[in-house]
Each structure stands twice: as structure tokens, then as C-alpha cells.
Design a protein around this nucleic acid. Structure first.
Length: 599
RNA sequence: GGGGGCGUAGCUCAAUUGGUUAGAGCGCUGCCCUGUCACGGCAGAGGUUACGGGUUCGAGCCCCGCCGCUCCCGCCA
């Protein structure tokens, strides 16, 4: 080994020993006569002292010429720092290495940006950080994220191994399944005109593994989706993928709760209570206006459909007459909302199809609102009671189709919470984690444009058994055995109990989803066939691993927990990928470009 | 595909809202400094204001286009 200790190891117990440290020059303080150099490695930092009075001149000159982030190897004796010169900010701050040798392993050029000062480094443009990712990752904050990610991955493997799961790798070169997300294609040189596709998830393979008798499968799997990106979505991302045979939903909940409990303990040393609360999809929408509610704060929606059924305010009574609902929420203490904030909320509402956004400001014991003149005493009393209206509140309304009205107020609720947070009126404990399962999703949703049903989750999701007869007669009312696990308003993962009878699967494909039989055969024939030869009842889930780590690290962007992420446009600024295709490559693949090349 | 924000020295940001020679901190270079730890002091170098047009007596600032980064909508079975 080139070193005897790492840079967070030396303590007073090592006094008098000779130590050799390797690492990066974190900072250099040249006082003219004596030079202090902080050597940093991934564990921490240690101060080395270069004193010209007992050093060969060439060693001292090398120390004088050091630049930040150069890589060095320093040998010297460990000694107590003189009285009054301890550095309480670092764990090694009571000792120092009195250098006798210095080897410069790599003299660094001046850096494109400084990384020694955490606050300044965190403000550097992400473009710069991504271009020089090796420098960005040297920052202790980023190394901590990578380390946490690694530990959670190891914990996950240990946990599933203990529970009798097999880790099985599935192909990255898969085949195109045009349902769902847009895929990345990989042209096949051996037969021009054909292509592999990168998997959106190992869904079909893991179900086949159940048919194969694996019984319990997991994988920390890379997935690929060629869709537009977000702070929490990358082109390639990682899932903890799980599938189990001979289980019901409850068995799966317990398995995943056990995993998350273990992960939170290892990563944050926190005990999270289980079982997690269960919330039906319909209740999630009714109370929070979203299928992944953040339950750390209230401001729940309330229903006023009955109260406004015969209201003189036609916007409300008309919506009810058309079979819709009237919903409201109380943004506690937000009567002070600015014109701009009210406008932003209205824009949010109209972007979801609302005609406008009705509101009541409660100020100076008065209800200020363009619509309050339509309200009678009964309505006012109902509002006051159900919403707990007090001085300083802002009440917001949505009327219309149930799902739309709920979703509008769901967005408003989150917006209002952000405003209240910024004003310091709503404070969330950063150590609080509200887990819950959302269950009883509708199996199918209706696509108005294409005039057909599509799977809310995916076409392999099993209907709730007692609802199967309604598949043909009343598809809207069929519940799926689908579940999402949510924490603090973030969808951490989702899954379902799968269909394991080929006839039910065929009904879903052909009669409900209206996929022509030959198409279903071409895309999923091997699954239908496999299911004819002894398919066990099974189900599973996939957890977003990057999101999981981001939550544990307390960062809003998964780019902070991925070593080499891509930009919003899908490029890697460090390697400058994707790159242009060479004519030779195109010829081999039997491809021809239609558009003009950029160069 | 659509909407918002940003782009000025190596980095982070100013530039009195269109007016003289575009500034500061950090970094960098040189000199000084023997107990610093964001060391300190003195001096200095460093700019195609992302890029291309336009308006104007005059543009970092206004207009059009374009590139990049970012946030959101659509999209993400």
C-alpha cells in the first residue's frame, strides 16, 4: 500500500508514529516560513506541516509549488498540535503530520471551479459541474450521496437474500413493445431492418421467471425510457424490481415495508412504523386531489356538492346538475395572497380545464369574494364548519367532473403549501416521512381522443376478483389489484398482482384494450403461451431507486445521486454523448440518414 | 411539441433600468510573511457581455433569431 492511514484516521493515540498519507491538496496555507497543507481523501482531511528548518530544501520547494487538488503522498511523524492551534472543525484537528517527505503524484492545473468551500461549490452552475463531474464528485456532499447509494444497494441485496429472493439479471437487449413509454432502439447489424429495444422495465421477464418457478425474484435493474426529462426523471434510471409467487397484496406490502424499514434504519438510523396506512384511490382524490398525497400537512379538500345543488350560483349548481361535484379547500392563513399568486393559482386551474377559480378571502371578519353574494346562510355555515374557516383564510373552489375538480384543487393545495412554506407559516420537519399505500386504483382509464380504454397501470395487472364479471359490462368500475407506495407526496414505486390465467389476459388484450389478436400474438404471444404451461399466481413491484436515494439524501434532483447523469436534453456534458454516427457504422447497420447532418 | 427562468473575467455575482474606459469577491501570477486552517498583506494579469442579426447618435440592457443549462405542461403502459 502506498499509505499507512487514511485522512480521517490519525488521533492522539497515534502520537509519535510515522504515517504516510495519500490524497488531494484540499488547501495550502503558505505563511512564508512554514506551510500547512490539508490532505483530503474520501474519508476526511489531515493537516501536514512543512517546516524548512528540518526539511531538505527540495522537499520544501515542492510544498511551495503545490496547487489545489494536486495528488500527493506525505510521510511524517504524527504529533500533537501546539496549544491553541487545534481545529475543532475536523475530527483529526488535534493532531498533525510533521512532514519529512513529499511526493507529488500529480500536479493539478488551476481548477475550472473551486471545490474546497462547500457553500460556494454548491452554487456552481450544474452545467459546469456536469462537464467536470470528476471534480464535482470529489466534494464531500456528493461522495456522501454515492456512499449512501452504495450502502442502500447493499442493504437491499442483503434483505432480499435473507428473505429467500434470487437476484436474476434480465436482458438489456430486448424487443420493442410499443405500448407505454417511447423506447430506445438498437439496430441489428445481422438483419438490417430489425432492432432490439432497451427495456422500459424487466416486467415481462420477471413474470416469465415466476412461470419458471423462481418464486422470489429481485434485481437492481437499469431501465430506459425515451421520454422528456424532469428533476426526478432520467432517460436511464434504476429500479428495485421485485416479483413473488403465491402471494396476495398484503404479503407484498409486508415485504416492501420490511425493506424500507431496514433501509431507513441503515441510511438514516430512523425507525419507521409499519404497517403503512392504506388509502383508497378514490379517498386520496377526495381528500388530497392527487393519487400520491403528501400527508405531512392538512388543507384537505371538502365536498359541497349537496350544499350547492340548488344554488343560485349557476357555475356550481350547473356543474352538479351535469353530474359533477363542487369541492373546496381552505388555504389556511393565505388571505394575504398577492394578485400574482391568485393569478398563478387561476392559471393552474384553467390549465386543467377549469373556467376560472372561485375564491373567498377572509379578512377583517369579512368574506371578500366576487361570488359570496350568491351564498345563503346555510351554505356559509356549511363552509365554515367543514373547512374550519377563520380570520386570514383563503378558500378556493373547483366545480365540475369529479376527477378534474379533485385534481385542480390537488394542484392548488400543493401550490398553496409552497407559498405558505416560503412565508414560514408552514414548517415541515425534514426528518418526517409519511409513508402510505394507495390501493384500489381503477383498472382502466378512458382515452377520449382515441375513444378506447387503456390500462391505468399496465395490461398485466389483475382485476379485483369480484370485479372480473364487469370487465365487459362496466369497465370503469373494475378495480385493479394495483398499489403505489408513496412517501411525502413522492411516488416511490408501484406494482400489482398480475393476471396468471391466459383467458383473462386474452380478454384484457383483445376485448377490453382492443388490441387485434394478431398484434397481441406478435407482441405478447410468448407470455400467453408461457401462461398455458403452469403459471403460478404472482405479483410484484418496482421502486424508483434514484428517487429513493434522493429522498434519503434530502435532494430534490436525482441528478445529485447519479454519478454521471444526463442533461434535460439527454446529453452527457462530460463525454459529449450522444455522438454522430460514422458512415461506416451506418453502412454496417444498413441505415441511411434522411435529414441533413449537423456538421 | 408548448410555456417560464438563466447565460457578463477561470468561478460566483454587480453594472443606478439605453449613456464616459464593464466592476467586486474568490481563483490565477509575482513579491512579503514561522502556527495557519476560507491564513494575512502589497502589486498585477485576466472580458468577442453565449452566438448571429436588427433598432438607436449610442446596446451588457430594447427587438428578432439561434445555441446551451434549468423548471414546469404535454409525455412517462
Amino acid at each position: 500500500m502506498k499509505r499507512t492511514h487514511h485522512c480521517n484516521q490519525l488521533r492522539p493515540e497515534h502520537l509519535g508514529q510515522t504515517a504516510t498519507l495519500c490524497g488531494w491538496v484540499h488547501s495550502r496555507r503558505d505563511l512564508g516560513g512554514v506551510i500547512f497543507v490539508d490532505i483530503r481523501d474520501r474519508e476526511g482531511r489531515t493537516q501536514a506541516v512543512f517546516d524548512p528548518s528540518d526539511l531538505p530544501p527540495e522537499v520544501f520547494h515542492r510544498a511551495e509549488a503545490l496547487r489545489a487538488e494536486s495528488v500527493v503522498r506525505v510521510t511524517g511523524s504524527v504529533r500533537r498540535r501546539p496549544d491553541g492551534t487545534d481545529n475543532p472543525k475536523i475530527p483529526t484537528g488535534t493532531v498533525e503530520v510533521m512532514a519529512s517527505e513529499l511526493e507529488v503524484l500529480n500536479l493539478a492545473d488551476p481548477l475550472p471551479f473551486q471545490i474546497d468551500e462547500p457553500e460556494a461549490a454548491a452554487r456552481v452552475n450544474e452545467e459546469m459541474r456536469l462537464k467536470h463531474r470528476y471534480l464535482d464528485l470529489r466534494r464531500p456532499e456528493m461522495l456522501r450521496n454515492l456512499r449512501l447509494r452504495s450502502r442502500v444497494a447493499a442493504t437491499t441485496r442483503t434483505y432480499f437474500d435473507e428473505q429467500g429472493f434470487l437476484e436474476v439479471e434480465t436482458p438489456i437487449l430486448f424487443k420493442s413493445t410499443p405500448e407505454g413509454a417511447r423506447e430506445f432502439l438498437v439496430p441489428n447489424r445481422r438483419e438490417p431492418g430489425t432492432a432490439y429495444a432497451l427495456p422500459q422495465s424487466p416486467q415481462q421477464f420477471k413474470q416469465i421467471l415466476m412461470v419458471a418457478g423462481v418464486e422470489r425474484y429481485y434485481q437492481i435493474a437499469r431501465c430506459f425510457r425515451d421520454e422528456d426529462q424532469r428533476a426526478d426523471r432520467q432517460l436511464e434510471f434504476t429500479q428495485i424490481d421485485v416479483e413473488m409467487s403465491f402471494i396476495d397484496r398484503e404479503d407484498l406490502y409486508a415485504t416492501i415495508e420490511g425493506l424500507l424499514q431496514r433501509v431507513w434504519k441503515v441510511a438514516l438510523d430512523r425507525d419507521i412504523p409499519t404497517p403503512f396506512p392504506r388509502l383508497r384511490f378514490a379517498d386520496a382524490l377526495n381528500r388530497f386531489g392527487i393519487d400520491k398525497p403528501d400527508t405531512r400537512f392538512g388543507m384537505e379538500l371538502a365536498d359541497f356538492t349537496e350544499e350547492f345543488r340548488s344554488s343560485p350560483f349557476k357555475v356550481f349548481s350547473g356543474a352538479v346538475a351535469a353530474g359533477g361535484v363542487v369541492k373546496a379547500l381552505n388555504a389556511k392563513g393565505l388571505a394575504c395572497a398577492t394578485q400574482g399568486q391568485l393569478q398563478a393559482m387561476t392559471d393552474l386551474a384553467t390549465s386543467f380545464g377549469a373556467k376560472g377559480l372561485a375564491f373567498i378571502k377572509v379578512e377583517n371578519r369579512e368574506w371578500k369574494s366576487p361570488i359570496v353574494k350568491f351564498f345563503g346562510e346555510t351554505e356559509k355555515a356549511a363552509l365554515t364548519e367543514k373547512l374550519g374557516i377563520e380570520e386570514g383564510d383563503l378558500v378556493l373552489f373547483a366545480a365540475g367532473e369529479w376527477l378534474t375538480a379533485c385534481e385542480i384543487l390537488g394542484k392548488i393545495r400543493l401550490y398553496a403549501a409552497d407559498v405558505l412554506k416560503a412565508q414560514g407559516k408552514l414548517v415541515l420537519d425534514p426528518g418526517r416521512f409519511d409513508f402510505l399505500w394507495v390501493v384500489d386504483f381503477p383498472l382502466l382509464s378512458f382515452d377520449r381522443e382515441q375513444n378506447r380504454w387503456y390500462s391505468s397501470h399496465h395490461p398485466f395487472t389483475a382485476p379485483v376478483a369480484e370485479d372480473i364479471p364487469m370487465l365487459r359490462t362496466d369497465p370503469k368500475r373494475v378495480r385493479g389489484q394495483h398499489y403505489d407506495v408513496v412517501v411525502n407526496g413522492v411516488e416511490l414505486g408501484g406494482g400489482s398482482i398480475r393476471i396468471h390465467q391466459p383467458d383473462v389476459q386474452k380478454t384484457i388484450f383483445e376485448e377490453v384494450l382492443q388490441i387485434p389478436p394478431e398484434t397481441a400474438q406478435a407482441r405478447f404471444g410468448y407470455m400467453l403461451e408461457a401462461f398455458r404451461y403452469g403459471a403460478p399466481p404472482h405479483g410484484g413491484i418496482a421502486l424508483g431507486f434514484d428517487r429513493l436515494i434522493a429522498i434519503l439524501c434530502g435532494t430534490p434532483s436525482i441528478r445529485d445521486v447519479i454519478a454521471f447523469p444526463k442533461t434535460a436534453k439527454g446529453t452527457c456534458l462530460m463525454t459529449e454523448s450522444p455522438g454522430l454516427m460514422e458512415p461506416k457504422q451506418l453502412r454496417e447497420l444498413g441505415l441511411e440518414l434522411k435529414g441533413a447532418r449537423k456538421d
